[in-house]
Structure formats: structure tokens, C-alpha cells
Design a protein around this nucleic acid. Structure first.
Length: 192
DNA sequence: GCCAACGTTGGC
DNA sequence: GCCAACGTTGGC
């Protein structure tokens, strides 16, 4: 098995093939620091929002396809790296942000996730994977960030499935739902 | 490499 | 619980 890799928020790689690993994704290093705002809101959700959570069907996950050394470790993990793993499967670890972690907990097996290349020469969506984490396919055509933004702006103005995108409203969120509801998911899918 | 955005930490 | 300092993210 290839060595475990970590990135900043995006994350990656491949310890236990076939498992999305939200449980160990975010750790409390000391176990005694204060709860973050995100953690608190998480707890509240559990308390009084049970059952009324929106259910998402498609996701977007960011990772860095270009080499960059962080703490002596190369964090590179692009879609080609996932594709190259045994069974084209890996484990998406190293996610530290609590909201991102919570989204990972909402994921269901075999849902689709778009593989976004970030912090690189050509940021954008490169391909598709299944929540498993398994490579599914490359997109017919790479969709650069600029194009995503164009669609997003248009949908915002005229209505459309991409009118709300965490990609543009929440900086630094490495795991995010792409859309809610079956209809809009389908629309998005056709799109791509 | 720069730096704006923003989440986290931790003293108070 | 506030908030300044700090660290990370990620486009450019």
C-alpha cells in the first residue's frame, strides 16, 4: 500500500482501500481545547435538526494535483493519482475542517463526487469518482474554474442548479455538496 | 511568491 | 464569550 498522504484541507490517499474515513479525518490533538464554532453548530444540528437535514446527492472534493512539500511530505494527489491506485480506489483523509468533515459524514456509498484540482496551474473539475473512494471517469472535458464561475454567475442571475456553490461562497471548504435534490442533480450532471 | 479570506486557537 | 494573533487555503 502506498504511503499515506496528507494535504492541507484537501486530502487524500489511500490507507484502507474503499473507505471514506471521516471518523479519523479530524482529530483533536489535545482533547482539551475549546470546541470550535463549527463543532458547536454540529452538535446543535444533532440536537434539534434531526431529520430535517437537506439530503445531498452530489459532491465536490478538492485536492492538489501538483507537488508541494508540506512538513516534509508531498501532498500531491490529483485524479490521475487516484486512478493509478489498486482498483482505482483510495481513502480521502487529512480533512481538518469541521464543516468539510460533517459533509463527509453525510455522504452515502456510491454517490458521485466531482474531483476538483486546486492550488495548481489549472484549477477546475477534472473527473468523477464514487464515494467509496473510487475513480469513476475523467470528464469529457476539463472544466476550468473560470467556466464554473461563468455558469455560476449565469445561474445566479437567471436561475439554475449552480446558483449556489460553496466553491464561490465558502472559501477553503475542501469537501462540499454540489447540489440538493434529484432534479437539480440531474441537471448538473447533464451539464457535465 | 503574494496576499486576501477566513477558520482556529487560546488568553482574558 | 470576545477577539487578536496565528495558520491555512487557494487564486492569481
Amino acid at each position: 500500500m502506498p504511503p499515506k498522504k496528507r494535504t492541507r484541507s484537501s486530502a487524500k490517499a489511500n490507507r484502507n482501500a474503499g473507505a471514506v474515513g471521516p471518523d479519523d479525518a479530524v482529530q483533536n490533538k489535545t482533547g482539551k481545547r475549546k470546541r470550535s464554532a463549527a463543532e458547536n453548530s454540529d452538535l446543535e444540528k444533532k440536537k434539534d435538526d434531526e431529520g430535517s437535514k437537506p439530503s445531498y446527492s452530489h459532491w465536490l472534493m478538492k485536492s492538489e494535483p501538483e507537488s508541494r512539500i508540506e512538513n516534509g511530505v508531498d501532498v500531491k494527489f490529483g485524479i490521475e493519482d487516484l486512478k493509478a491506485l489498486p482498483n482505482q480506489r483510495g481513502c480521502w483523509d487529512g480533512v481538518r475542517n469541521y464543516q468539510a468533515r460533517n459533509f463527509m459524514r453525510d455522504m452515502k456509498l456510491d454517490q458521485q463526487s466531482f474531483f476538483y484540482h486546486s492550488n495548481c496551474k489549472e484549477p477546475g473539475i477534472a473527473g468523477l469518482m464514487k464515494v467509496d473512494v473510487q475513480f469513476e471517469r475523467m470528464l469529457k472535458r476539463f472544466i476550468p474554474l473560470s467556466e464554473l464561475k461563468k455558469h455560476h454567475m449565469l445561474h445566479k442571475a437567471e436561475g439554475g442548479p449552480l446558483k449556489n456553490m460553496f466553491l464561490f461562497s465558502r472559501a477553503r471548504l475542501s469537501v462540499q455538496p454540489l447540489t440538493a435534490g434529484k432534479r437539480s442533480s440531474k441537471q448538473i450532471h447533464n451539464f457535465i
